[in-house]
């Protein structure tokens, strides 16, 4: 906040400070002047260099949009806005169908998996954040928090491997049958023929829920920790129980921060690729039941990109364009939420 009151790159400070006595310079009319201008040039050069780096930071997102649009232009021109609602992905013409590409099943898959992941992951991560920020004794807090954060350091392909060889069999033999038994009468949990393999929209969503836990819980934890003690005491002094004091104090105070954290998690869930690709079953059809295999925007790109011909590649890049649009929307929203939190933190008592 407090920028040091120093010269900028275009306004270099005199190179001759108190460190250099005036008499020490043999030719006072030339020496300091030359050094000053040399320092000025270096300072300006350095300032320019870091400005260039800042420009890179600004240019990258802009370039991202331009390049991805440009690379998907073929598909955009060919299929128009119908691409977004198109339901079929036919990369080579057959007697029954011409070449056609549509994003709808993948958009649906992305939304479906990330919404379910949020439903599972958000309560868990907020609960964990409350425990770590408000309830845990000091000696427990730091170690457990860093272990939770370690979860974020596990590469997503390792989550995928674990999902494929540990979670999928577990879902197939334990969770899915139980859910079918109790909830099979609802369309969401309907059991179709061949939908009992364990690879499914539900399995991918559960993996996603696990993967967004550290993101949401660590950002929420920070938001909760930022609540002044006076808020907790205000609630306690009215006779609140510990839970009520947490709800009235930190949870209310940090709510925009927690909301921002959840949206960051949503962004991560929507874009996650490998773990989903390895557990969702990769079917281009709409998943009507959670036990059906499905496909998300990112998993479709990952699966098909390597062997795609130019037109299909362009269509896959257009899927990337849609995914980018969705995640830009979500991320800008999250950042604005988190920013409003800092503002409230500054003005509230």
């Amino acid at each position: 906040m407090a920028e040091p009151p120093v010269g900028t790159g275009t306004d270099p400070l005199p190179a001759t400070g108190p460190a250099e006595p005036a008499g020490a310079t043999p030719s006072p009319s030339q020496g300091p002047d030359r050094r000053r201008s040399f320092t000025g040039v270096v300072d300006r050069f350095f300032g320019g260099l870091s400005t260039l780096a800042a420009l890179v930071l600004i240019a990258l997102p802009a370039l991202l949009i331009v390049i991805i649009t440009q690379a998907s232009w073929r598909a955009i021109v060919r299929f128009g806005p119908g691409f977004v609602i198109g339901q079929f992905w036919v990369p080579s013409a057959s007697p029954t169908s011409p070449i056609t590409f549509g994003a709808a099943p993948f958009v649906a898959g992305t939304l479906e998996t990330s919404v379910i992941a949020m439903l599972i992951g958000v309560p868990l991560s907020i609960g964990a954040a409350i425990f770590l920020a408000e309830l845990a004794p000091d000696w427990l807090r730091a170690p457990v928090a860093s272990v939770v954060d370690l979860l974020a350091a596990v590469p997503s392909v390792v989550f995928g491997l674990w999902g494929l060889y540990v979670l999928v069999p577990y879902m197939r033999s334990n969770v899915d049958p139980a859910l079918v038994h109790y909830l099979g009468w609802t369309p969401l949990f309907a059991s179709h023929a061949g939908s009992q393999s364990g690879v499914s929209v539900l399995t991918a969503s559960i993996i996603l829920a696990i993967m967004i836990l550290p993101t949401i819980s660590s950002v929420s934890r920070e938001a909760l920790r930022a609540t002044p003690d006076s808020q907790r005491e205000a609630a306690l002094s009215l006779g609140a129980t510990r839970w009520e004091a947490t709800r009235l104090g930190p949870l209310a105070y940090a709510r925009s921060g927690i909301f921002g954290a959840a949206i960051l998690g949503l962004g991560r869930a929507m874009g996650e690729t490998m773990a989903v690709t390895m557990t969702i079953g990769n079917s281009d059809n709409f998943a009507t039941s959670l036990f059906d295999p499905g496909q998300t925007l990112s998993s479709k790109i990952a699966i098909n990109f390597g062997n795609a011909l130019p037109l299909e590649k362009s269509a896959l890049i257009e899927l990337g364009l849609i995914l980018m649009g969705l995640s830009l929307l979500v991320n800008v929203a999250a950042r604005l939420m988190l920013r409003s939190m800092t503002r409230m933190g500054g003005s509230a008592p």
Partner: peptide, 19 residues
């Protein structure tokens, strides 16, 4: 924008650089 960039899915970055 740097904050927004960190939230862009890595596969989109892959598509971008491929582009």
């Amino acid at each position: 924008l740097a904050d927004v960039m960190t939230g862009i899915p890595s596969i989109v970055i892959g598509v971008f650089v491929f582009g």
